[in-house]
Amino acid sequence: MYPTEFEYYRPKTLDEALELMKTVEEPKVIAGGQSLMPMLKLRFYEPACLIDLGAIPELKQVKLDEGGNLRIGAMVTHFEVIENGLIRENAPILASTAENIGDIQIRNRGTIGGSICEADPSADYPPTMFVLEASIVLLSKEGRRTVRIEDFIKGPYETDAREDEIAVEIIVPKSTDQYHVEKYARRKADFAVVSVAAIARTASDGSIEELRIAAGALTDGPERLKSLESALKGKKKDSVDLQTSISETVDALTPISDIHGGEEYRKYSLKMMLARVIKELIE
């Protein structure tokens, strides 16, 4: 299968890339291409011009800024997210999340920026990014802006990025709280049927001091489960009615319903997964 014809550009600097985004006809950015190339082959996208970000060194860096936030270049591969010492130390949940992505070949080539900008509702990073309260840095000739992940992902395959903007960096606040990230798929390399990311901190008296939970594989994209968080936060772990709180939250959600799992099955599985994840975190 072949994509439609396109012109190919491989800028060596961000400035050059931003200029191209403004001047060429119908540009589409290619990062690792592990989602985009299958889409191009299926001709879901037929861009006139492809801008390859693979030759811009500054997009491949991982840094820790003065505020203790990780700054991860958009072209950092999933493989590097797993292996990188700074990420493992300052946001280990992110490294664990990357381990769940696709298969090794995809992790070797796919990038964190590409995956987030693809905004697939069943993708692995978004629930984790939601609990980490990460942000995306967008750059264009007009300037730079930083968008919270929850505002950036607007729906399935839809983001807040304008046509002339490039996502250059993911800002991830340091998080060394207890975490758990879980994904269920029939085969290892498949997209999630159900996925959950959560971080928690319990106080010495056994109360739940901090709890952030997000779910993926939902029809409208990933969601922070705020009603569940507030039902549990501040409570003693022995005094919470976990099953009722989980049921109330999940019954209000709309999981994807397709050949990989119907809505009822996915809701049931999500309840089981949430109960397991939360119990593990608070005990």
Binding site: M37, P38, K41, Q105, I106, R109, A189
Partner: peptide, 22 residues
């Protein structure tokens, strides 16, 4: 379609599917 891995090669030492790269 990036699913089967028959086209796997190493590029700069890293395994990738060569049907999913230009």
């Amino acid at each position: 379609t990036t699913s089967c891995g028959a086209c796997t090669i190493l590029i700069d030492g890293m395994s990738v599917k060569s049907c999913t790269m230009f």
